[in-house]
């Protein structure tokens, strides 16, 4: 294991655990941003430059900010003392999560795919990514454009609801 991997993995796990454990919701959003950023750094470490920067742009720049906005807009909802953030069935949930991790880890460790040697770093240029997006993956790209347009319209409609009624 390389030192960079250990550092990034530790940061990723610590910040994602913090994101789900913190009681203060803004801390949650901020540590989530750290988790996304460290994941992007892991992508860079794996040689996926384009995916890493896309991750930072979309997750840190858009999703984390959206979550922050949503937290601020629904600020009064979380301060209900009778209903703490954790549900009564949290032991069941945690047990299921641990169980799932156990299953996954067992299968990963015993899998033959992990014995794969690491190939030489691939030399993928941005131009190659763009060309394959425009040739082999052009249909998914078009569908994605449609999906994003629909999502933008849908989100705007949902958010504008009050204005339309009044």
């Amino acid at each position: 294991m390389s030192a960079v991997f250990i550092f990034l993995a530790g940061l990723l796990l610590a910040s994602s655990l913090a994101a789900v454990m913190f009681r203060r919701l803004v801390y949650t959003a901020l540590s989530l941003a750290v988790a996304f950023a460290s994941l992007a750094a892991l992508y860079l470490h794996l040689g996926a430059e384009f995916a890493g920067f896309a991750q930072v742009m979309v997750y840190v720049g858009a999703v984390a900010i959206l979550i922050v906005f949503a937290l601020l807009l629904t600020r009064n909802a979380g301060s209900d003392p009778e209903h703490p953030g954790h549900g009564g069935s949290w032991i069941t949930g945690a047990a299921i999560a641990v169980l799932v991790f156990g299953c996954l880890a067992f299968n990963i460790v015993t899998s033959s795919a992990c014995a794969r040697p690491m190939p030489n770093p691939p030399s993928i240029t941005t131009r190659q990514i763009g060309e394959s997006l425009m040739t082999r993956y052009v249909l998914p790209l078009e569908v994605l454009g449609l999906l994003l347009t629909a999502a933008a319209l849908g989100a705007a409609t949902l958010a504008l609801e009050d204005k339309r009624k009044s």
Partner: peptide, 10 residues
Amino acid sequence: FFAVGTASEL
């Protein structure tokens, strides 16, 4: 450039 620029919003 644009990816690192987004962090200043946070």
